[in-house]
Amino acid sequence: MYEISLLTVMCFSVIFALSLNLITGFCGQISLGHAAFYGIGAYTAALFTTDGGSFWLALPLAMAVAGFFGFIVGFASLRVRHDFLAITTMGVGFLFTGFVRQQEFLGGEEGIAGIPDPGIGQIPYMLLCAVLAAAVIAFSLYVKRSWMGHAFDAIATDEDTARTLGIDVARYKLTAFVFGTALAGLAGALFAHYVKFVEVESFDFIESISVLAMVIVGGIGSVWGVVVAAAFLSVMPLLLQVFADFKLLFYGVLLFAVMYFAPGGIDSLMRMLWRRISGRRTAG
């Protein structure tokens, strides 16, 4: 059903957005090329299952391959910082699409079709995505409160200070990249088996921007804010069909407006609202 279809999209988008939130939100390493890892996961899973591999094995395999490439790109984050890192990761995204376009075994510009159905039916597939999304939410909340989360936070705030505090900056950055990209790979594998067709345009720069937008609109580093933003933004173009002509414009204006008026995103808006409500309660 249509609603199930939308819910499925929401669930793997939440996983994808939270995966970037680990890197950019928690650890402060901006990435403009995250769609490449989503793509690596999708292509890995697609190749594996079209070749007769099991869907259940495809998921961890997609995570492993995406995480492996994430580990390599993580080294880049040890070399370059801030704006240089933003452009380097953007370059990784372009390199991914530029490479895939020329490779026959990846279907080139045409992509890979005929990805087999996981064979569990539409509703169970949605539930599977939902369970995995819930697990990723729980994992994010856990990491945020753990010692690792504090180390990430220290690196995001000020890398040099974190280093003087004795935090192994390199190790934590690499960890963030591996976790984040592996989860993006998982989201990609789920995406591939939902659309049953992957092509390189689905993982281009615009897609990287879209997922970054989910993290930023949600509130960088906030778990629940990002979940809400990802769920909303992923299906917004489908819900706004009535305003067909203006929805991309709306999207652009929304990105700008959030940065202009509420750089903390949904998270800071919710907090403000909460403070007002609880403030009134204590006053009254």
Binding site: Y2, S5, L6, V9, F191, Y194, V195, F197, V198, E199, E201, S202, V235, P237, L238, Q241, A244, K247, L248
Partner: peptide, 12 residues
Amino acid sequence: YDDQAKPKFAVP
């Protein structure tokens, strides 16, 4: 319906 020429919108 507008699919933006993208498979991810075409399916739903």
